[in-house]
Amino acid sequence: MADETAALPETPQKRLVERPSRLTTVLRETGPTVAAGLAFVLIWEISVHALGVSKFVLPPPSMIVVSMVGDFPYLMKALAYTAGITVAAFAAAVVSGILGGLLLTQHKDVERMLWPYAIALQVTPMVAIAPLVIIWVGLDRVWLGLMILAWLVAFFPMLANTVQGLKSADRGLQDVMTLYQASRWQRFRHLQLPAALPYILTGARISSSLAVIGGVVAEFVAGSGSSTGLAWVIVESGTMLDVPRMFAALFILSIFGLAIWWLTSMVQARLLSRWHESELGGER
C-alpha cells in the first residue's frame, strides 16, 4: 500500500511568469546578430591580411570604413538620391496598388478585363523596357524614368495582395454583415478592409524591398552620367578600380534596404498588434 502522506521530493520553485527587463530583451534579441556580424568582419579582416589578398579584389573592412568616412558627403548625396526615388516609387506603388485592388474587386468583369494585363506588366522584364522609359521621359529627367521603373517593379505585389486580401473575408463573417443588412460601404469598411489589412501589409513589405531593387537596377540601366545615385557610385568606382568605395556604397545600400524592411515591419506590427496570429510571436 502506498503511503499517501509521504511528501514528494521538493522541486525548485519557479517564478510563474518570468518578465525580463526591456534591456535584457533587447540584448537577447540583437546580441547574437551583432556578435555574428562582428565575428564575420573580424575573420574577413584577419584573412585578408594573412592571405595577402589584393585590395583590388577584396579590401579589408578597415579600408572600407576609411573610404566610407573619407567620401562621406559624396556617398550621402548618392544615398539621398536613391532613397528619394525608392521611397517615392514605393509610396506610389502602395497607393496605386490599393486603388487598383479596389477597382479590380468591384466587379468580376473589371477583373477579367484588367487582371491579365496586370500580370503581363509583371512578367515583362523591367530591364527590357528601361531604355524605352528613359527615352520617353527624356534624358534631362532621368529621375522620373527611374521612379517609373522602380514603381513598375513594386506595383504588382501590392496589387495582387490587395486583391487577394479583399476577397479573403470569411463566409461566416459575411453572413453576419448580411444578417444586419450592412450597406456596401459598411461591408467594405467593417469587414473587407480589416480582413484585407494583413495581406496589404505583407504586400507593402515585399513591395518596399522590390522598390529598392527596382531603383538600383534602373540606375544601372540608365547608365553613365545621367544619374547620381548609389548604383552609379558603384559603376563609377568600378571603372576607377576604387574597390573599397564600391564596397562602401554596397554596404550603405544594404543598410538602407534593411532600414526600409524594418520600418515596414514596425508598421505591420503596430497595426496588427493584438488580433493577428502573425504578430503574436508564437505566444499560445
Binding site: 470569411d170 461566416g172 463573417l173 444578417l179 444586419y180 467593417h190 469587414l191 480589416p194 493577428h276
Partner: peptide, 30 residues
C-alpha cells in the same frame, strides 16, 4: 435589421474587434 438574431455554429467574431466592439457591431451598423 436586428429583428432576427442568429447564433452560428462558429462564433463568427471579427478578430480585429474587442469583445465590446463585436457586440456593438449590429448597433453600429444600425
Amino acid at each position: 435589421a436586428g429583428e432576427i438574431g442568429f447564433v452560428f455554429q462558429e462564433p463568427n467574431l471579427m478578430p480585429w474587434l474587442s469583445v465590446f466592439d463585436n457586440v456593438y457591431l449590429p448597433l453600429k451598423l444600425a
